[in-house]
Deep mutational scan, measured.
Amino acid sequence: VCKIPGCTKRYTDPSSLRKHVKTVH
């Protein structure tokens, strides 16, 4: 789960989560 408040994205792959946080937030 993305830890950013208001963001409901969920990832099973830690690298995908990291990429999401870097690119989306």
Rank of each mutant, 00 (worst) to 15 (best):
C2Q: 03
T23F: 04
K9T: 12
K3W: 09
V24C: 12
D13V: 01
L17P: 06
S16C: 09
V1Q: 04
K3L: 08
C2F: 02
H25P: 07
G6E: 09
S16K: 13
T12G: 12
T8E: 13
R10E: 15
T23K: 01
H25A: 03
K3I: 07
H25S: 04
V1D: 12
V24Q: 12
K9P: 01
R18S: 15
D13R: 02
P14L: 09
T8M: 07
R18C: 12
D13M: 01
K19R: 07
V1C: 08
Y11T: 11
V1I: 12
R10T: 15
S16F: 06
V1L: 05
K3F: 11
V24F: 09
H25E: 07
K19N: 11
L17T: 07
T8Q: 11
R10S: 15
H25D: 08
S16E: 15
G6F: 01
C2T: 06
P5C: 04
S15L: 11
T12E: 14
C2A: 01
P14N: 13
K19V: 12
K9E: 14
T23L: 09
P5R: 03
D13A: 05
H20W: 00
T8Y: 07
T8S: 10
R18A: 15
Y11W: 02
R10W: 08
V24K: 05
G6H: 00
R18L: 14
I4F: 12
V1H: 01
P5Q: 11
I4P: 00
H20C: 03
C7G: 03
S16H: 11
T8W: 01
K19F: 10
P14H: 06
R10Q: 13
H25K: 05
K9V: 11
R10M: 11
R10L: 07
P14V: 10
G6D: 06
R18D: 15
T8P: 07
T8N: 14
V24P: 08
T23R: 05
R18T: 15
K3Y: 10
C2W: 00
K19P: 04
H20P: 02
T12N: 13
G6R: 00
K22A: 15
S16W: 02
S16Y: 06
P14G: 10
R18G: 13
C7S: 03
L17H: 07
Y11Q: 09
Y11L: 08
P14C: 11
K9Q: 13
H25M: 04
T12S: 10
K3R: 05
V24S: 13
R18W: 09
R10G: 10
P5I: 05
T12Q: 13
V21G: 05
T23I: 11
Y11P: 06
